[in-house]
Every structure is written in structure tokens, then in C-alpha cells.
């Protein structure tokens, strides 16, 4: 079956059986390897992508269920690694092996989009589906707070620039 997908703002037509998980379409058909396979049963979150802005497990999302919803993967967070979570993850030196981190960042970015100033509790709840086998949770939490700060100051700057421009 042919499916027309919207991945990272681009349209892509893929040929796959309807039950093929979005994960494997991304990895093996579209060559977007940032999204990772860890368990295949929605337990680990390594395959987390955003679907219409919501964090979902792409290993549990058949390609036939994607429809027109915008698919965002780690490769689409920014063109140059400058999304606030990408900057914060680097500043805090979060990863050990790094294998789970794309999924962690996709969950974090979805959280920050709806809750710009998350509490620790908000973070624990939003990140509950993402395992880190190396145990970098303390730094992930710290990086999410940092990303929230960066995003706020960035949007403050944008507002100010716009105001300056209007004068």
C-alpha cells in the first residue's frame, strides 16, 4: 500500500503494508535513523516521535493510522541542532550511550510545547514512558528545566525584536 505522509514538514510517499509500524517506515524506508528501536511493545520510549504535536510510540503506531497528522522526528526538531531541548541536552551533557535520548527529547519537546514552565512533577509524568538504561534521569530533568528557560528567554527576545522592529 502507498501512504502519503507528512514527515518533518515534507511530504513523502511510502510503500508499506498497513500494519508496518511508523518506526520501521521512518528507519528502513525513509532512512531517518534518529528514531530508535528498543522493545517493540511501547515500554521503553526509544521510538518516541510526535504525531500532530503529541508524543507517541512509533513502534505502536501502524503506518495506516498516521493519516495527515504531522510526523515530527528528532531530525525535524531543528535544521541545525538549535531547538531549546537540543541546546539544553548539550549544555547539561545529558547522555551516556545516547540511544534513548532522541525519544527523551521528543517527549520533552512535546511537554514544553504545552507546558512551557513544567514542574518536576509535570516532568516525571510526561517522561514516564521513556526508559534510560544508563540512568541519566537527573540530567534529563535538569535539561528540561534548562530548555524551558532557554525557550522563554528566546521567545522574550523574539517579542522584543518584534517590538523594536515596529518602532
Amino acid at each position: 500500500m502507498a501512504y502519503k505522509l507528512n514527515v518533518n514538514g515534507r511530504s513523502a510517499t511510502v510503500d508499506a503494508s498497513p500494519d508496518t509500524p511508523l518506526l520501521w517506515v521512518l528507519r528502513d524506508v525513509l532512512n531517518l535513523h534518529g528514531t530508535k528501536y528498543g522493545c517493540g511493545i511501547g515500554q521503553c520510549g526509544a521510538c518516541t516521535v510526535q504525531l500532530g504535536g503529541r508524543a507517541v510510540r512509533s513502534c505502536q503506531t501502524p503506518v495506516s493510522a498516521v493519516g495527515n497528522a504531522a510526523v515530527l522526528t528528532v531530525e525535524g526538531l531543528s535544521t541545525d541542532g538549535t531547538h531549546p531541548v537540543q541546546i539544553a541536552w548539550q549544555e547539561i551533557d545529558v547522555p551516556q550511550c545516547g540511544y534513548c535520548q532522541a525519544g527523551q527529547m521528543m517527549s520533552a519537546a512535546a511537554l514544553l510545547a504545552r507546558t512551557p514552565k513544567p514542574t518536576d512533577k509535570d516532568i516525571d509524568s510526561a517522561m514516564n514512558g521513556n526508559l534510560c538504561r544508563c540512568g541519566t534521569y537527573l540530567r534529563i530533568r535538569q535539561a528540561i528545566h534548562k530548555a524551558a528557560e532557554l525557550a522563554t528567554s528566546a521567545s522574550a527576545r523574539t517579542v522584543q525584536t518584534a517590538q523594536n522592529g515596529s518602532r
Partner: peptide, 10 residues
């Protein structure tokens, strides 16, 4: 890592 580049064995 943060850009999701294909650096792992898989």
C-alpha cells in the same frame, strides 16, 4: 546524538 545522526550499530 541530539540531532539523531546515524551513529549507532543499528
Amino acid at each position: 546524538i541530539v540531532k539523531g545522526e546515524p551513529i549507532f550499530g543499528i
